[in-house]
Simulated assay, not measured.
Amino acid sequence: MKRTHLFTCIALLTIGVLLLSACAGAGIGGKKARVALVTWGLVTGDPYNALAYEGLKKAETDFGLEVAVNDEGQTASDWEATFRDYAGQKFDLVIGHGWNFADIATKVAADFPDTYFVVIGGMVEGDNIASVVFLDQYSGYLAGVLAALMTKSGIVGTIAGFEGEGVYYEVNSFYQGVKATNPDVKALIAYAGSWDDPAKGSELATSMIEGGADVINHYAAATGLGGLEAAEKAGVWGINDVVTCKESSPNTCLTSHDVLFNNIVYDIVKMHLDGKLEGKVYYWGLPEKAVGLGPIHASVPQEVIDQVNAVQQQMLDGELQLEQDYSQPDW
């Protein structure tokens, strides 16, 4: 009886220790893990940064982390100091949310070998730095397939923020999907010269609609939201970038080509806590749930949805593989 009682006490003590460890939060080397997120703008009001922050907060809840974010409207001149500040405070992991942090993070990582750095959208690697490239050509292609199936006029327009390789490949991926589905569709492309000019986006979309376009797609951040509002007023379809477009066009939001930054940030944190994060470039797409189509409008016929899903399955099965085409769009 005494021996049984002893074993029972030991078992209860072990369970208690495990529960205390769990309550203390996930840790590295026995201490509570600390993770910082550096963004190029505010996390409130900007869908790109808001999604990344959402992933960070979920990781905080699930893993019991201490987290921080530079939600202070910083400019480019502040970024290096922000990275150095978090590393100097001995954060275990610092995530730079944007390709524009690649050089800065690489420079700072060399001075803080005990902190791990990850850049989302960049292509850097090293002893204590990694990066994640999101393969959004797949979500763009799928949106193009849907646009080609839903246009009645045979004219599909796209508003882009700026000219440049980083935008060209997105526009190309969309029209690759359009043309693969219906090569007779006419492509309209306009560059706004701004990420933050909804009035310009509305102007460009209105011009396209007057030219016969009945689907307006965009890769133009807040500028593109103005285009979606113009599409809503005209009663034509709109396709949003990164997040769903229901707030801007609740009645004519066809879908969105999403980059699921919430999943990306969450998975980066989990990999680091599990000791699986390596100093290399990761390429994440549909299988990793880093990209995908947003909700499709309820009025879209099931046979159209089935066609889009069939193309997506080809991608998942490896039958349809897409490269990022950085050439100037000429459709």
Score class of each variant (00 low, 15 high):
M1T: 13
T4R: 13
L6V: 15
L6Y: 13
L12D: 01
L13T: 15
L13P: 07
T14Y: 13
G16E: 05
G16V: 00
V17G: 12
L18F: 15
L19M: 15
L20C: 14
A24V: 00
A24Q: 14
A24Y: 05
A24L: 08
I28N: 03
G29V: 02
K32S: 02
R34Q: 13
V35G: 10
V35T: 06
L37H: 05
L37T: 06
T39R: 06
Y48R: 01
N49E: 12
A50E: 15
E54H: 12
K58V: 09
K58M: 09
A59C: 09
E60S: 02
E60F: 04
T61R: 11
L65Q: 04
V67C: 08
D71E: 11
E72F: 12
G73I: 10
T75R: 14
T75L: 15
S77E: 15
D78N: 15
F83W: 09
Q89H: 14
L93T: 01
I95D: 01
H97M: 11
G98N: 01
W99L: 09
A102M: 03
A102E: 14
D103Q: 13
I104L: 03
K107A: 14
V108Q: 11
P113N: 07
D114Y: 00
D114F: 02
T115D: 06
Y116G: 00
Y116H: 12
Y116E: 05
V119R: 09
M123H: 07
E125V: 01
G126R: 01
D127N: 14
I129D: 10
S131Q: 06
S131H: 05
D136V: 02
D136Y: 11
S139P: 02
S139A: 13
S139K: 05
A143W: 05
G144I: 03
V145E: 10
M150G: 03
M150V: 11
T151Q: 08
I155V: 15
I159F: 10
E165Y: 06
E170G: 12
N172A: 10
S173H: 06
F174K: 10
Y175N: 09
Q176E: 13
K179W: 05
A180S: 14
A187R: 03
L188R: 08
I189E: 12
I189A: 07
Y191R: 10
A192V: 08
S194W: 11
K200C: 04
G201W: 04
G201A: 05
A205I: 04
T206C: 07
M208Y: 11
I209Q: 00
D214W: 03
D214N: 08
H218E: 11
A222N: 13
T223H: 06
G226P: 08
G227Y: 07
G227F: 08
E232P: 02
A234C: 04
A234Q: 04
G238T: 01
T244S: 15
T244V: 13
S249W: 08
T252I: 04
C253K: 01
H257W: 13
D258Q: 15
N262F: 00
N263T: 12
I264C: 09
V265G: 09
V265F: 09
I268G: 00
D274S: 05
K276F: 06
G279N: 05
Y282T: 03
L286N: 09
E288Y: 02
V291A: 11
H297T: 01
V300D: 02
V300Y: 03
V300W: 05
Q302H: 00
Q307H: 04
Q313L: 10
D317L: 03
E323L: 08
Q328C: 06
